[in-house]
Each structure stands twice: as C-alpha cells, then as structure tokens.
Design a protein around this nucleic acid. Structure first.
Lengths: 204, 204
DNA sequence: ACCTGAACACCGTTCAAGT
DNA sequence: ACCTGAACACCGTTCAAGT
C-alpha cells in the first residue's frame, strides 16, 4: 500500500512551509492578542498573502482548532485515565480544574469555545467533542456514586467551567478569584460535603 | 435660587434634540446589534455627524451607561425594599434573578459589565456602584442569618450572575439553561438546604 | 457652543492575475 | 496547485472647517 497523505496538510513543498509558518506565527500572535487576533497581522508576520492564509485556514476557527488540538487531546487522555480512579468526585474535580486552566491559554478562549459549543459542523466543535464525551463519562461515574447532583449534565459543567474562565478573562483583577469561584461551584454541585467545612468554620 | 442646569445634558436647543435623538436611536440599534453595535450606524440613523455623537457620548460606555441607568436605579430600589423581607435568603435569590434577567436586555451586556466591573472611573462603574452596594447589604443580611456561605462577597455574586448571563448570551441553545444554572449556583451557595430536595429525589 | 463630514488607520473577505 | 495583493465594504476616532 502507498502512504495516504494527510488530507489536512498541503502537498506541495512551498505550501507545506507556508502552512507551518502560519501556524507558528498564529500561535504567537494569538498568544499576544487573544482569539480575536488580527488575521491580517498573522499573514503579515508570516510573510504570506491574505489569500494564502485563507486557503489553508478558511475560517478563524479552523486556525484556532489547530492551535488547540493538542490541548484537547491531552485533556481527553487525562479524562480516560482518571476513569479508573477510586475517588470519582475528586477525579472529576481535578479534570475540570485542568480544563479551566487550559481555558486560560489564550484570551478570549472561553468565548470562542462557548459560541461553538452547540454549533455542530464547526471545526472547533468536532475537535472538542471527543474530549467532552470523555469528560461526560467522568461525570456519570461520579453521579453513579452519588457524589454529584444528578440534575447536572456535561454541557452544564462545561458551560460553568467556561463561565468561570470567562470571568477571569474579563478583568485581570478577577483572575485571582478564579480558583475560589471554581471551588464555590464545585462545592455546590457536590452531594458529599453538603457545605464545605471551612465555610462552616468561618460562620459566626 | 436659579435652577441649576443638569450638567449631563446640553444647553442649546438643537444640541438637546440631538442628544435625545441619539439616545433613542441607540436604544433601538443596541437592541438589534448588542452592546458592540456600530457607532457609525447609530450616528447615521440619528441623522447626526460622527463628531456630534462623540461630543455627547465620548465613549461607547458613556452611551451605554445612559441606556442602563433606569435599570440600575430600579434594581437598587428593589434591593433596598427587599432589605425588610423576613426571608433574607429568598430576598437575595429573588434580587439576583432579577439582575440576571436585566442582563439579558442587550446582547453582550454581561461582557460590557464585567470588563468595567473593577475599572473605577468609567461611567458604567460609577453608575453601577450604587446598585451593587445595595445588593451587598442584601447579601450580608442573608449571611448574618447563616443562610449563605460566609466566604462569598458581593463581587463573587455579581461575577457569577454575569457569568450565567454570559452563557445564555453566547448560544441561543444555552439560553434555556439559564434558570437551571442559576439554581445550581444558588443552591450551592446556600447553607440552609445542603442539597436541594429534588436533586436528592432524583438520585438512584 | 455646537455641528459636519472628510481623513486616517485599521479590519475581514474575496478574487483576478500571476507562477 | 498554489501564491499575491489590490479591491471592497466596513469599522472607531479625530479634527479642521463651518454656523
């Protein structure tokens, strides 16, 4: 059998180079400006015409998806490995915290995630789906053990984590509260510790 | 004593008219396009030059603030009146729900609120402050009665409510979940009902 | 005191022309 | 098969010139 070429990558050598250059420049520019970074700027700094950028990445999301692919894969793998944990609620909490930190990779990322969360057909949705399915199993398991409210589904959790990431995203002064807000929400969804012990201690 | 002129409104008759026209057109356009509505479009539809719009409203926020003033005042008044309720936790929940619904008035509003939440000096911040102070009293009261976790402050609550509003704002399909997510969070912050009864019933 | 609208520096997206 | 960059239709913001 002959090697099947990866359909996502271009064939010609110059196209190959451009594809990779755009991607690496995009990583830098999105790192600086966030997910709403100027595409023109990316093309400029990659020494590439606008048409070339559009040829390789027909939408901003297609570009973003490539930037995030690795993170998604890592999180999916982590979810799978956490499924064998003997503390399902802690496993879930740990994974969600990891997700939240991943959302801080680029400014505007929670927003980009949410706008495409339920919009099938978009590359970001497809790429994100595997990870979300894996996370869903983690949730079901914790619920099966009676650790988490049963009236919560994977989309709820995903939305809430994104929301907390979004808060941090908006004002730098709020970023410090991110972990705290995460704790508040996770405590609230838990059926194990009706109210966190430190909260009870502080009461007076 | 002579009447003191309202310093926020222009003196000359034509300026008066323009000011009001811009405001009423802005209400419509922001209603259609959200808080990121095109200022050019507003000026166009108000039959006014760009400079006129900028003269009356030096920033997008100044314009927005005028659009939201009434809502802020109403919420502040409601918070004040709820302070005499004999069910402080319900009073707080009701007020927050009202706030959340107010956030749905314009697309992008939660985002506009959050970016200026801690940025003093911006007109939106100043206009919002009174309301937030009133809400803070509502929270302290509920905490004083031991109904709400003591390790939550007004900014946390405000951020969380905005976050839920933001979720609904992103994808229409998520808007239906808004009330549900609100309940999840409020239940979680409550010390009265360690876990909501319906959640316990559904468990199996 | 206030208004106008052109000017400037940016966007995203498309597409004819090239190699 | 791929690349270029001008063209188009938009922005927000400023400011000289008018009344």
């Amino acid at each position: 059998m002959t090697e099947k070429a990866d359909p996502s990558r271009p064939q010609r050598a110059d196209a190959q180079r451009n594809y990779e250059r755009i991607l690496s420049v995009a990583k830098a520019v999105v790192g600086e400006q966030g997910t709403q970074a100027s595409l023109r700027d990316i093309a400029r700094r990659a020494d590439v015409g606008m048409g070339t950028l559009y040829r390789h990445f027909p939408t901003r999301e297609a570009l973003l998806q490539e930037l995030l692919r690795q993170g998604f894969d890592r999180l999916a793998a982590k979810a799978a490995s956490l499924e064998s944990s003997d503390e399902p609620d802690q496993a879930l909490a740990e994974w969600l915290q990891d997700l939240m930190r991943g959302m801080a990779a680029y400014r505007g990322l929670p927003g980009s995630m949410m706008t495409t969360l339920l919009d099938e057909g978009t590359p970001l949705y497809a790429s994100c789906a595997t990870m979300r399915v894996a996370a869903g199993r983690l949730l079901k398991r914790a619920q099966g053990h009676g650790h988490i409210r049963p009236d919560v589904d994977g989309t709820d959790l995903f939305a809430l984590v994104n929301a907390v990431g979004w808060i941090a995203d908006q004002a730098p002064a709020l970023a410090a509260r991110q972990e705290h807000l995460f704790t508040l929400i996770m405590d609230g969804l838990s059926l194990r510790h009706p109210a966190s012990s430190d909260a009870a201690e502080q009461a007076g």
